[in-house]
Amino acid sequence: MLPEKLLCAKQSFVKGRAPLEDNAYTIMGYDNGAVGTVWSSCVNAGSMHGQIICVIGSKASIEWWDEQPNQLRLQIQGKPAQILERGMEYLYSEAL
């Protein structure tokens, strides 16, 4: 699904990187009413790596962090968070 609307704000904080941007916020609007956001930054103070991908839905969310690449955090509304490990038999066959 491709976004129908797109808005991006970008900045250069580190003068030596200009004219390249080192920080950007993107908002995407989809035809079904869903909204997606992306924050891309090289200036997140205190975060050496910190690549995080988070997908938030109406019933659950998942989060992946590059510091723990073999794990996926699953949070289902009303239930405790779960950590799913790569290669485990409880995963769908497509995930294996």
Rank of each mutant, 00 (worst) to 15 (best):
M1S: 14
M1T: 13
L2T: 08
L2I: 05
P3M: 02
E4L: 13
E4A: 12
E4S: 14
E4V: 14
K5I: 05
K5D: 12
K5A: 10
L6V: 10
L6Y: 14
L7D: 09
A9C: 08
A9N: 07
Q11H: 08
F13E: 01
F13T: 01
V14R: 00
V14K: 00
V14L: 00
G16R: 02
R17A: 04
R17V: 02
A18P: 00
A18S: 10
A18K: 03
P19T: 06
P19A: 05
P19H: 06
L20F: 03
L20D: 06
D22K: 00
Y25G: 01
Y25D: 01
T26P: 00
I27Y: 02
M28H: 03
G29Q: 01
Y30A: 03
G33I: 04
G33Y: 02
A34V: 02
A34Y: 03
V35D: 02
G36F: 01
T37S: 09
T37V: 09
V38G: 04
S41I: 00
C42Y: 03
N44C: 07
A45M: 04
A45H: 02
A45P: 00
G46Q: 06
G46R: 04
G46W: 01
G46K: 03
S47T: 12
G50Y: 02
C54D: 08
C54T: 13
V55K: 09
V55E: 13
V55M: 12
V55R: 09
I56K: 15
I56P: 01
I56M: 14
I56W: 05
G57P: 03
S58T: 14
K59E: 15
K59V: 08
K59P: 07
A60C: 12
A60H: 12
S61H: 12
S61N: 14
S61C: 14
S61Y: 09
I62L: 14
E63N: 10
W64G: 08
W65E: 09
W65R: 12
D66V: 08
D66R: 07
E67P: 04
E67Q: 15
Q68K: 15
P69S: 11
N70Q: 15
N70V: 11
Q71F: 11
Q71R: 12
Q71E: 15
L72G: 05
R73W: 10
R73H: 11
L74A: 10
L74M: 13
L74D: 04
L74F: 12
Q75F: 11
I76E: 15
I76N: 13
I76R: 15
Q77I: 12
Q77Y: 10
Q77E: 15
Q77V: 10
G78Y: 10
G78N: 15
K79R: 14
A81F: 09
A81Q: 15
A81C: 14
Q82W: 13
Q82F: 14
I83Q: 13
L84M: 09
L84S: 07
E85Y: 09
R86Q: 11
R86T: 07
R86N: 08
G87W: 04
G87F: 04
M88D: 11
M88A: 10
E89G: 04
Y90A: 07
Y90S: 07
Y90G: 02
Y90D: 04
L91G: 02
L91V: 03
Y92G: 01
A95C: 08
A95Y: 03
L96G: 00
L96M: 05
